[in-house]
């Protein structure tokens, strides 16, 4: 029964960082103009890699954000979806922001309440997919049951969804999955942080852009035939006569 629960599978290896999910989340009628999903470029100076972050709907411990809420503003529905704060109850204390392992809750500065992903509850209870997963052009955000994910052929090349995360000693088991490789059993975030701090001493991995690149020479030096074609400029070289006149509408 548990296996047929529909979940989000986040696969950063498929993500192209287009922020379609961000744009689509903003279209939702319940929080129009605001997005509850984030796309981060991991390290733009090294790579174009990007990764989505959205509420993972923690199952064990169940919804830490809701547990720390002094106003009982964050409700968990019977199907395990952690709802956004009830804005009539929220006291804007920001406890949930500190409790969340993934940094998901957003605080509505002007209206003074918390908002977060509720798995597009209005859509998903009617059998539709959440906006982000529906529009995602690369299906880096996949919505469906575990079996659906397998049936889509996602596991053929050794991908494996993980929903156990370690933060030091604390394990967090979530409804939504992050897709890793078949060797992984869980994601230890503190270990990742330790790895990162080592990089000052460790040589950076080679960027794919550099692996096959080399210096170049012209065709003569390389010894391949070439056809010289006379350059055909299509416009005579001139400079503009006047500054542009801005169009005015009277």
């Amino acid at each position: 029964m548990l296996q047929t629960v529909k979940r989000i599978f986040l696969d950063p290896s498929r993500c192209i960082g287009c922020r379609s999910c961000v744009a689509a989340c903003r279209e939702c009628d319940t929080h129009k103009g605001e997005s509850m999903i984030y796309i981060d470029y991991i390290e733009r100076s090294d790579t174009v890699a990007s990764s989505p972050t959205v509420c993972m709907h923690c199952e064990d411990p169940l919804a830490p954000c809701a547990q720390v809420c002094p106003a009982h503003a964050i409700l968990v529905s019977s199907d395990g979806v952690v709802q956004s704060a009830d804005e009539t109850r929220c006291i804007y204390c920001e406890n949930c922001g500190y409790a969340c392992p993934f940094g998901v809750p957003k605080f509505h500065i002007a209206q003074q309440y918390m908002q977060k992903c509720n798995l597009c509850y209005d859509r998903t209870i009617q059998g539709k997919g959440p906006m982000c997963a529906t529009v995602c052009p690369t299906q880096a955000i996949f919505y469906g049951a575990y079996e659906d994910w397998l049936a889509a052929g996602r596991a053929q090349q050794g991908a494996k969804p993980i929903n156990d995360f370690y933060f030091g000693q604390q394990k967090v088991h979530t409804r939504n999955y992050v897709v890793m490789t078949s060797q992984d059993e869980e994601l230890d975030l503190m270990a990742l942080v330790d790895d990162v701090s080592l990089t000052e001493l460790v040589e950076m991995p080679e960027v794919t852009a550099a692996r096959n690149a080399d210096a170049w020479v012209d065709a003569d030096s390389a010894g391949i035939p070439q056809r010289e074609v006379p350059s055909q400029p299509w416009t005579p070289r001139t400079v503009p006569v006047r500054e542009p006149v801005r169009a005015t509408i009277s």
Binding site: C18, R19, S20, A23, G129, T134, V135, P137, Q139
Partner: peptide
Amino acid sequence: GMLCPKGT
């Protein structure tokens, strides 16, 4: 159903 940010 998929759309890019321009389409959305």
